[in-house]
Design a protein around this nucleic acid. Structure first.
Lengths: 113, 113
DNA sequence: TCGATATTCAACCATTCGGTTGACTATCTT
DNA sequence: AAGATAGTCAACCGAATGGTTGAATATCGA
């Protein structure tokens, strides 16, 4: 796996910080798609969608192959894994909280009887 | 867990898209910290750091309690869990890749003997 | 009460963002 | 060769971002 440096993570999280782009990731995760297909569901110009796609591409979240005049996009999930890896460092905090919550629930249930 | 809507995710990922703020999260995850303590490691004005803290707070990534003149920040890891949850939908894509990689390695090792 | 400390606020600035439109390039089809 | 199709590029626009500085607010300690 490529080690995630700060510059990478800036690009990745920035790309993810927009609902249109997150939805584009969902779309392209279903099946590889052309630029037009990626743009179609959104109420914006093709040029605007094309910019979003470029942001995703620069962040390495999708990859593009050009064949003739059509550009095909496919997901590059390894990059999502980098974001996930950064977050996973803090996983202990929320799982810890869940443990506390669970034990609280158990205690409450015992009291019922 | 609070359901992550698009607005939440916009704020969360935007907050994470800055190296200063990611480092602030790391700092505050070690131990709760005052605003000054959060700002100290960075080469910027207190006001700038204060703005970053506000971004983290609005995204609900940290929480603040005010006691007298000191504001204490603590991590709110549940919100990181929301980001992680969004990413986890795509986990199958990268773990699939790892599986392929693993089986390739196994095949290669078998060939050696 | 006075000065130090902790923090925010407001105004400003340059840059980036997310969108538009119109022109352009390249490829496919006929 | 001519027109349709796929997509980008460039210029523009208003709003948001990330920083600054100086003033304001509120609390603490002597």
């Amino acid at each position: 796996m490529v080690e995630p440096n700060n510059e990478n993570l800036d690009l990745i999280f920035h790309a993810l910080a927009d609902a249109t782009r997150r939805e584009m990731i969902r779309l392209v995760s279903e099946k590889e798609k052309t630029v037009s297909e990626m743009a179609e569901p959104f109420d914006m110009s093709l040029a605007a969608a094309s910019k979003h796609i470029k942001v995703l591409e620069k962040a390495n979240l999708i990859q593009r192959t050009v064949e003739g005049r059509t550009h095909t996009c496919r997901i590059n999930a390894e990059t999502l894994a980098l974001a996930s890896k950064w977050l996973s460092v803090y996983e202990k905090f929320w799982s810890k909280r869940f443990d506390v919550l669970e034990s609280e629930i158990l205690k409450a249930k015992k009291k019922e009887h």
